[in-house]
Design a protein around this nucleic acid. Structure first.
Lengths: 169, 169
DNA sequence: CACAGTTAGTTGAGTGTTCAACCACAAACG
DNA sequence: CGTTTGTGGTTGAACACTCAACTAACTGTG
């Protein structure tokens, strides 16, 4: 017997409509199917993306994104905190990741002018080359496993759905 | 300058239309926006889900899913390989995870009858209780961060999109 | 200008995932 | 039947992420 298998019997009628004491708003059968399909799809998709990048370019997708953001920035460099914000990454995660990218010679740290607490992450030429080498295979994977599987209407819908999910926080 | 910033100049006209030698099919500006919105949405969403479960139930979402699948199975038990298949999990990941769940007293291993290589993962009463305690908060989070943000049409679309992405592999 | 509070960033420990190597048993094959 | 090949599952090392604690420098306030 699954725990949230179906809508359970309602609690007493005088319960408040929300809050910690309220009965859980279980998913109905259709929602349950949508939820599991969504989990399955994202799992399969990101596994493909991650796998392709790891196999062909020896980097996790998160590191690829760091390189992309840096490559787009003026002077191919960005303050650590600014980079973390754009990537929706914790400072800690970014700090660890940049350390590894630095060891690989793809990124270099430079202390920020005017704020002695601050550091810039700078994309090196080697880093740019690694990104340029990785990009075609990665884009192809995104096409194959995402865009090619959807109709133009579905792509539009996915865009709107994504923005709705990301809205507020 | 971003690496895949726009559609690049086409290569020689006698190039093959696909294969490793073909020019990359870069994302156009709209696809790029959709792709980034999708990444952002999934990142935000899973961070919420993971965070809620970690805070309130001290388990990662992957472990919650193991408990759910076991709770749904006859005798609350499943062969390791069957469980791995249903979760789209590697055997290694599942093996490590079940070891931890075993240490927590939430799952127990039982050798499978008839195949001395095989093992069953069995949900314990403590495990069921932990799942039952975690479920309401988790379901609420799924509602808040997914279903509540979408219109019924969008939920339907998300279901179809998810199935399309998961189709074939 | 002292000092309380905030911001930038790093660090290390703990946890989870991957990958390749591995052992034990089962099935298939000549 | 004995040997090969496949399957079920585990293991340990390497890597990545999280969380909390921490240092250092900046900012605002009286």
């Amino acid at each position: 017997m699954p725990v949230p298998s179906s809508v359970p019997a309602e609690g007493p009628a005088d319960r408040p409509p929300t809050g910690p004491g309220a009965p859980p708003r279980w998913l109905d059968a259709g929602e349950q199917r949508t939820w599991r399909a969504f989990l399955e799809a994202t799992r399969i998709f990101f596994e493909q993306i991650e796998g392709q990048l790891q196999r062909d370019a020896a980097m996790p997708h998160g590191y690829y994104e760091i390189l992309v953001r840096l490559s787009e920035a003026p002077n191919r460099s960005l303050r650590m905190s600014e980079l973390a914000d754009r990537l929706l990454s914790s400072r800690s995660r970014l700090s660890h990741a940049v350390s590894r990218l630095e060891n690989a010679g793809w990124v270099r740290r430079e202390s920020a002018a005017g704020d002695r607490r601050g550091w810039l992450a700078v994309l090196t030429d080697d880093g740019f080359a690694a990104l340029a080498a990785a990009a075609p295979g990665h884009v192809e994977a995104v096409r194959t496993h995402l865009f090619d599987k959807l109709t133009p209407d579905q792509v539009r819908a996915l865009h709107e759905i994504s923005e709705a999910i990301a809205r507020e926080r």
